[in-house]
Design a protein around this nucleic acid. Structure first.
Lengths: 207, 207, 207, 207
DNA sequence: CGGTAATCGAGACGGTACGTCATGTCTTACA
DNA sequence: TGTAAGACATGACGTACCGTCTCGATTACCG
């Protein structure tokens, strides 16, 4: 990942100032206009940088958009152990949902999803950086809950994760309803209540 | 809404053959390549139609993509009354999920969402045609379930709808896991079980 | 040219009103914008006529422009016999030059010449209607002058005609200098004086 | 006018190879088809160049056509002093007329005149490059002839120039007769003889 | 402290799709 | 059959963006 500190690199070193300016300009333009309407030329101008410098470090506009989004999106609240699943999940999801709602990140995510659904390599990279990291934190919480006996041992964890993140992404991308704490808490509650049901109610589920 | 049957329309009438060819060619190209990589020229050639004819009826590529997707997507299974919520929801969601999984519709939807998150007018139209119609059917089912006493009267219906559709869209757009009947049924079961919880478990929910 | 009055033509007869409106609208638009910038649609709208009606009677825009120009341009002052070549030529050329100078006919002529230099059939038609008619009148004057003994019998008539019309067209098309009576008369005088020179001056012409 | 030799020019320098290829391809296509039928796309393909590169340097097709024509047309025979007006004018006009007759330059000129008669700015530029340069050489010859006493001091030089160039352009654009040395020499002779007439013949000219 | 080498800015380049526009044809219903 | 209305195929237009490239200038290290 990081260059060997003893390996001296020849030539002029990469300008960190330029990198920061590019990522910063990108995120602003992307949030304002979305991926499609953000041109690399515009980023270059806004960052006070040459277009060649951008393409030297990012092979496509989407790769740059991914890095730019990651910069903001990766503020990871560690999966703290509060003692209860419910609180753990709230601690995990609420700050993230708040972040998602604060600015139109949906514009960038939608643009990246276009690439995800068509470009398998990009999809791998995208999921690793934006989905898997957060899912892993949820997974830890759920497994801890199993150990604690809060939820059944046969809980379908992957599906539960989709039920926690899916509704938030749904509103983020479609914009038909707001993403607020009430919404997130209700989702968490319903999921948690749903995975430890009263057996008596499930009589008709077998049909 | 309907044209006056006695009012003769002047001029050459619109070619329905051309319209069909355009929509057909579009859906094929869109599924194959996605919205961004589908060019209007390519649609025109594939449909054996002039580019001008396309632009006469669809102002943007996204509008055309919406119409093309709608053609396939709008196969509405009416919200039949099977007698139980669980079966009603399965009848509603399973065929739709199967359809969604059969071909890469995610490619088109992602392309349309790009427009949705940036263009409010388009978003209204999109939601009316692709979200609201299906949500309304789910709403009917849930309200019937309330009348039957299967679920509480204070069930937060809109959130429940997001919990039913959101996870499916999540997998459709991110492609991290398959959309099969097991998944859809599990989502339905968890949601239904979650909205009629044992009151005793909710002690900490009030905080 | 004209339809046989005894031949009964089936169906609706051609609308002379439409023909006039088309030619009239054409000439106005052509003078205002030139041939290239005048669209057939615009002519149709201005004439209150269908585009199909225009194409029924004129196969191309240029053909229509030719007819429209001819309408105005064909005001033929008959080659009157005043008794002297000089006066005959003035009577022939001055009114025509005045007409040419009154409105920007050069715009239409330039547009037609584009077709002339590339389309031999059009060139034949154009020359027959716009050049040959006027040249013939000049030819008659010059031949009369030969019979009268005003100019030599071996006068190269075709070249003389080019020397009379060429300078006027030159100014008409290039617009570098005005076309007025002084100019036209000077051209006539110089040509007439040039074709009956003092033989003594031509000593070096043989080299 | 000339760039400061010490001022280093930033960025990739303009490709002279591309410029030459564009002008070359243009002149060939223009001569073959005329201005209207020459598409910028065709020029780009023939020159092995991007369309954007053409539009970067030439704002319109006509501007490009002007540059392309100028490349060939600007072969200036300097106004040599042979000792007699007649020979001077022949030396000036005959090679030019030969050039004009060799290939269908009329096709290009007609196309440019369309712009000349409608676009005043273009007209200025066109006249400066294609008319004025040659007229100036004729002017020099005629003024030298006045000093020598070969022609009257009050010779209307501008009109004489129109009488020398006009007939050639007339045949070039209308194509009704060939442009050969006999024609050009006859024009020169007639004009020269016409501007030093026998005063006795001009009796009726004053009216 | 001068050479080497990678970076940077500027901006021209080939390529490709865009959405518009004009031409000339065709298809209706009406006169 | 001629006409108005207007949809149609064709194809060029001029613009815009992408990602590559070629310059001269800059900035480190390395010898």
């Amino acid at each position: 990942m990081s260059a060997d500190i003893t390996t001296a690199r020849r030539g002029r070193p990469r300008s960190e100032k330029a990198r920061d300016a590019i990522v910063h300009a990108s995120i602003e333009l992307l949030l304002e206009r979305g991926v499609a309407a953000t041109t690399v030329d515009a980023v270059a101008v806004a960052a006070g940088v040459s277009k060649a410098t951008i393409y030297r470090w990012w092979s496509t506009k989407e790769t740059l958009a991914m890095d730019a989004l990651y910069q903001e999106w990766a503020t990871t609240s560690p999966a703290v152990d509060t003692g209860s699943v419910r609180a753990d999940l709230r601690t995990l999801l609420c700050p993230w949902a708040e972040l998602a709602a604060r600015r139109p990140y949906g514009r960038i995510i939608a643009g990246l999803l276009v690439e995800v659904v068509s470009n398998p390599d990009f999809a791998l990279e995208y999921r690793a950086r934006f989905l898997e990291h957060r899912r892993e934190q949820g997974r830890v919480i759920l497994q801890r809950a199993i150990r604690r006996g809060e939820i059944p041992a046969d809980t379908p964890i992957e599906i539960v994760l989709d039920m926690l993140y899916g509704p938030v992404y749904h509103r983020l991308l479609h914009g038909h309803a707001p993403i607020d704490d009430v919404f997130v808490c209700q989702v968490i509650d319903t999921v948690l209540d749903g995975i430890k049901p009263d057996p008596a109610d499930r009589a008709d589920a077998a049909s």
